[in-house]
Design a protein around this nucleic acid. Structure first.
Lengths: 123, 123
DNA sequence: CTGTATCCTGTAAGATACTG
DNA sequence: CAGTATCTTACAGGATACAG
């Protein structure tokens, strides 16, 4: 016999969800940020670029395509004088937001802890 | 002037949290899985390796060290005959779980949608 | 058992320049 | 404005072998 594993084993991540896959949705480097800004309402390409200054056009395009393919955002070409493109969250896209905000909250907690209790571990 | 940005701009991720940083906590390739299994109770190194079969020793070590450094897990050497090491979530570590479960839920939704509505976009 | 050290790879992502 | 194409780099992560 190999190893005596204790049986208090957690149920594996629900139904073969390796969780890695789940993360691949929102785990893309910039994806959370994009979703964050899109959650406030439709936004154009260049607006997003300004929202997220350090993102490159390439990355933004890539992520948006990805999200579009997954049914998380819609892409609408608005035939104005200089043609512009609007991106917006789908209904399904909005359903993802709880995960995003949960992560943000966690991030907040962590930062607070870092700033505050660097040398004072929990009692 | 550069661009007329609509003002319905989302508040940026709370307090300079680029969100990227927040994700770096749980965004590490295997971190969510580790956390998931650890949430059920303390676990030894090799138990985790069996829980997460495809993880390499190197990655597991790396992630665990990271998590320990961040005060998310504790590392306890148990001086048994063959020495073993127990990892456990700290109280703070448990606080992160909502984010993990939120992500899992999102992943579930996405999978269901994929399996079910591949050619039937939302009405 | 619990790691560490080394090597090697693929891929994500930055920079840059160009098109419709 | 809204992208695409190409090149390049950095780093995460796998495999393997070894150490305490």
């Amino acid at each position: 016999m190999a190893l005596k594993i204790r049986k208090n084993r957690a149920a594996p991540p629900p139904e073969g969800c390796p969780l890695s896959e789940c993360l691949s949705i929102i785990g893309g480097a910039w994806t959370p940020n994009i979703l964050w800004y899109l959650a406030a309402g439709p936004r154009r390409f260049s607006e997003l670029r300004l929202d997220i200054p350090r993102i490159s056009a390439k990355m933004l395009t890539t992520r948006l395509k990805e999200l579009e393919a997954r049914g998380i955002v819609t892409r609408t070409v608005v035939p104005t004088s200089p043609p512009s493109v609007e991106y917006a969250l789908t209904a399904f896209g909005h359903e993802l937001m709880p995960a995003i905000t949960a992560i943000v909250e966690v991030g907040e907690k962590l930062k607070r802890r870092h700033a505050d209790a660097e040398d004072a571990p929990q009692p």
